[in-house]
Design a protein around this nucleic acid. Structure first.
Lengths: 347, 347
DNA sequence: GGTAACGAATTAAACGTTTAACTGTCAATC
DNA sequence: GATTGACAGTTAAACGTTTAATTCGTTACC
């Protein structure tokens, strides 16, 4: 008879008590073995581990978190997981979190403030260590945060730093619009069209504002903005329509990836081509933009840097940093490719 | 003096006890108010809610889960979150989960079996209700699953149904390869090149096997396979090299999205074009493939259906369905566009 | 008026851990 | 050979909920 084997109830999972009983030690010792917080005799440790294996025991993090109050979990809330920027952002945050030993709980508000509120509430009920939050609306769900006064929160991307009572990391959308417009103006564009899905998103509005303020410095340049919804084929139709009414502009700035596709589809359909017939700048650089006969000039957003900065800030807050909120703004890069080249010699 | 207000400790979060004390009721009543499992007098309920609001109380799901044993949480493990298929898959699963009131914890193995093992262990320590698992390797981490014998698991996509002791939902990769090859053969292709990043992934191998078996039925058609790694520019170089050595094939089947980009980059660089100089079929239909002058023929993978089937299976398992494991295989669609058109009349 | 039946609220025992406080044991120090 | 300290292990009390069992009061019924 080698073990004081008290078999656990048939259906139940083995708990620390079962392991302790089987190994003939106290539950405290078992806990010490698995948490490594106190040294235990080698022979004992072996016995404990053996017992655990035989019972298919594994620590229940829920109980552990309840008692100790500590758990390495961060919550991530984004408005749209299909968005290229956001899905990559989530991927990066996830990687950093895991490398630092954090678990990730994920939620998506699908651009619905009401959903955002309820899902946020549900996530935070798990008492995560921190929250990475990309809001879907300027109106933040403050009552939810009020219920969690000590929760470190880092806002990212679609956030208005000046309205946000926590750290933020954003991209210089204003500057990117300015730069794009500036580039086109220098190439002699007089009539510029900005193409967006919707203009309700803060980041998009900033891009437009940047371009507009640059253009206001010129007397003979005009800026138009066309919002066509997020459906690319429908967008292409609307753009065609617009071209019919207003004539071809000198340049198009498409404010999202999908809008660039809509623009290209339109161009192909009505038989015009950048840079011969107009100039084109897209937003959010992506592999397919370079693998074409005429690679596309784009504004590249520093996703990886945003993720890094967010994580860094979060780790520092979690570690107890209580300095005033900081707004980190990262700048974009205009990657100049063929669609903004000077007109090519021969057509 | 309207309330027996016993203020909670300064730093501490308010617990159910604090709320109970402040509202002058028992903790059970507070619990009933928030869980809705038992009716409580309207006036009392009001008092409880008021007290909760004043104390910024919200239920601690961790404690609740510990006591009740129930929690609606599902774990999701995928090998790569930047992959278009997988990130969309995760998005869909997440949406379905949330709609059914489940929380999602997410982890990414980054194609590393060791990471997969440890992260899986960490996730499952939270005792989720179910697991959606896209493995990174044929060798499944069975010991981890052994520790959680009652956990419903659904394997998806990169999984070999015949080696898997749980439900699976996969795509008919074999059939897709067969169909693609068949299509090209009917158009007279004699020399077909399959372009992949790596051939270690089960799904990729199946696609190749499908094409190979179709081609073996012909006496005068040959199939070559070229693996060029997952870096697109490096891939383009290798492909150029290959063209130099072996001459142009009649058709290229690029087995991933990124490989399609590598192929297009190569074509652009050496000045050839589909379908004039060779035919091209890509995998994984994506918006940018249609918004070109010559839209690309692709094998479309039914991601949304996969996600739906996975979720359906999971819900049924969670509900107690103990029927034998089922392997669901969804078929792909070849969307024929311009890159496999018969040679165009004029060049 | 007595009792049965019911509903609403309370009591107190869990759930599976961690951990402060405690008990031995053994070796080192004077 | 007492005293001290260090170390290894145990005891038992939490952590914040849920919930079975219980109490109490009210109403309904004969």
């Amino acid at each position: 008879m080698k073990n004081a084997s008290k078999a656990p109830q048939p259906g139940r999972r083995a708990s620390i008590k079962d392991v302790a009983a089987r190994a003939g030690v106290s539950t405290a010792t078992v806990s010490h073995v698995f948490s490594g917080k106190k040294h235990v005799n080698e022979a004992l440790e072996k016995r404990v581990r053996a017992a655990a294996r035989e019972l298919d025991y594994s620590v229940d993090r829920v109980a552990s978190r309840l008692r100790s109050g500590k758990a390495k979990v961060i919550a991530v809330m984004v408005p749209d997981l299909e968005d290229l920027f956001l899905s990559r952002f989530v991927s990066r945050i996830e990687a950093q979190a895991e490398d630092s030993g954090f678990e990730v709980i994920l939620s998506c508000s699908r651009n619905d403030p009401e959903l955002e509120r309820t899902r946020l509430r549900a996530m935070l009920a798990w008492r995560p260590t921190g929250l990475v939050f990309v809001p879907c609306h300027e109106e933040l769900p403050m009552e939810v945060f009020r219920d969690h006064p000590d929760l470190p929160i880092i806002g990212a991307d679609r956030v208005n730093p000046s309205l946000t009572p926590f750290d933020t990391v954003t991209v210089d959308n204003y500057g990117s619009g300015w730069t794009a417009a500036d580039n086109l103006i220098l190439k002699g564009a007089k009539k510029i069209l900005m193409l967006s899905s919707i203009t309700e998103i803060a980041t998009i509005r900033e891009r437009i504002r940047g371009a507009r303020e640059r253009i206001e410095r010129e007397r003979d340049v005009e800026l138009q903005v066309l919002a066509v919804g997020s459906e690319p084929t429908r967008g292409a139709e609307k753009l065609t329509e617009w071209f019919g009414e207003h004539g071809l502009p000198d340049a198009v700035i498409s404010l999202t990836n999908v809008m660039t596709l809509a623009a290209l589809a339109t161009f192909a359909q009505i038989g015009i081509e950048a840079p011969d017939d107009l100039l084109l700048i897209g937003y959010h650089d992506s592999l397919w933009m370079t693998a074409r006969k005429v690679p596309i000039t784009t504004v590249s957003l520093p996703i990886d840097d945003v993720a890094r900065a967010v994580w860094q800030r979060l780790e520092s807050r979690v570690a107890g940093d209580s300095s005033p909120n900081r707004n980190t703004v990262l700048s974009t890069t205009l990657i100049e490719r063929d669609t903004t080249l000077g007109r090519r010699p021969s057509r």
